[in-house]
Write a protein that binds this DNA or RNA. Sequence first.
DNA 1: TATTGTTATACTCTATAACTATA
DNA 2: TATAGTTATAGAGTATAACAATA
Lengths: 170, 170
Amino acid sequence: MAASPSLDPTELGAYLALIEVSSLVRHAVEQQLREAADLSYVQFQLLARLGDSPSGCHRMTDLADGVVYSRSGLTYQAQLLEQRGLVTRAPSRDDERSITVTLTDDGRAVLARTFPGHIEVVRRLLFDALTRDDVEALGGVLGRVRDHMRATPPRSAAPRRRRGSGSDSP
Amino acid sequence: MAASPSLDPTELGAYLALIEVSSLVRHAVEQQLREAADLSYVQFQLLARLGDSPSGCHRMTDLADGVVYSRSGLTYQAQLLEQRGLVTRAPSRDDERSITVTLTDDGRAVLARTFPGHIEVVRRLLFDALTRDDVEALGGVLGRVRDHMRATPPRSAAPRRRRGSGSDSP
DNA sequence: TATTGTTATACTCTATAACTATA
DNA sequence: TATAGTTATAGAGTATAACAATA
């Protein structure tokens, strides 16, 4: 397999541009979040995801699936947020094994206070150079990629599976 | 400040897709590099950049500008590569302050052995869902963003400047 | 037994500041 | 003085494995 694995120059260029752009955006955004609210990007993502939910809460597992790659990593970040009083954690009534993470008023306030600056950085870095057509094209293509990835065997969501390339039958 | 900072839904969607896609690509690629050659992504980038150079060498500063955000971070990674015999470091004849980093034969071999698998992951994840037009559009737009970013005050390349938004008097 | 989550631990990476040496 | 790079140090983040509790 992987006989002629080279990418077209066009593909290679797109890949390298993706890496460079996303790295710079990520870096700039992390810096802004750190200064504005002393939040890591993961922490911000957790708050944003909770804030986006109508109920303002999610189970740990749901959060882990969308944001972080290991459960322990999520536990770590959630603990930090809880210590700062930005979220609460409590067992779910639905399923006693699950923990429901809920955004507090303080957490919502921090989110509201942080979001504008975050968006500002993104817009300046990412969108100021683009036309509306560019933005639509970018979102369209990346959305397609995202859907493809979500449908693809997600190495992360299957901590059980040894990402072995064939016989993983225990 | 930042009175109406919200992004269009289109912009927000493009941004979120960019973050999710780049995170997943990065994660998958890092995993592959770690398993295939025990390389971090930064280390791979350094090797790739050196391999891409006609002379097979670069100054530390040039490498730092393109790959890493702090000089000490680059020193750290370069040391690891040197310990493994994948690069050499020697003072430049041109400017005795500079260190010239050179890819060794072993380094080139590792690069050659690692690149196909790397590309394979990228293609499967990123390009299998895209048409040629998609790829061209993606590369075009991201290339424009990259150019814009490179022209923009690079917070990273100016470790001296306190990125304070006006009065940075300590 | 399978799932949810935590803990303990070890390790990688990164950044800051102080330092040396050359231009 | 400014630039190129290293070192010391400290801290954040992540993953793995072992663990407890619920379904």
